[in-house]
């Protein structure tokens, strides 16, 4: 079958999103369903169908999402209201918008990769945690346990103050 010529295709916009916390990366399929759920709950099925949000890629603390041109602002608003992916708390912040994937990939390659070291076990307020220490003072603590795994966000100064 002959492909549709570029001038006949719908114009698209690509959004580069920073995932917070950056690790572990969410499953792209789960992220897609979460984005779609956010769009649908905010704008309804008809607008979601016109917007056509798709998760292109997801990894290394960043995700690329696509939509039809003209809907990028609505997609950004919907992404602001996204708070979890399969019960895991998450926040997505739009870093850049582009008309081509190539431009966003260049942008991602220019960003420094997320580096962290894991410290385990770490005791904080009589509880045992696994700590992820990122560059620039940030330390995330994940409580060890089966039922309730509290996630705390501290800085190096907070831990030194103990």
């Amino acid at each position: 079958m002959k492909p549709r010529p570029p001038t006949m295709r719908e114009k698209r916009r690509y959004l580069l999103l920073r995932i917070d916390p950056p690790t572990p990366d969410p499953d792209p399929k789960d992220l897609y369903f979460s984005v779609l759920d956010s769009v649908t709950s905010l704008y309804g099925d008809a607008e979601a169908a016109r917007m056509m949000p798709v998760v292109i890629s997801c990894g290394s603390g960043y995700a690329v999402v696509r939509c039809i041109r003209g809907y990028e602002e609505k997609l950004r608003i919907a992404i602001v209201t996204l708070t979890s992916v399969t019960e895991r708390r998450i926040a997505l912040h739009a870093v850049a918008t582009s008309g081509t994937l190539l431009a966003l990939r260049r942008r991602v390659s220019g960003l420094s990769p997320v580096r962290f070291e894991t410290i385990s076990p770490l005791h904080f307020r009589d509880r045992e945690y696994t700590a992820r220490r990122y560059q620039g003072q940030k330390v995330d603590l994940q409580e060890k346990g089966i039922n309730r795994q509290e996630l705390l966000f501290l800085t190096q100064d907070d831990l030194e103050g103990l």
Binding site: Q137, K138, E150, L151, L152, F153, L154, T155, D157, D158
Partner: peptide
């Protein structure tokens, strides 16, 4: 913290 899950320094950062 302790109402939320992040220290005031981390929130500020």
């Amino acid at each position: 913290y302790p109402v939320g899950t992040a220290s005031v320094r981390r929130m500020a950062m």
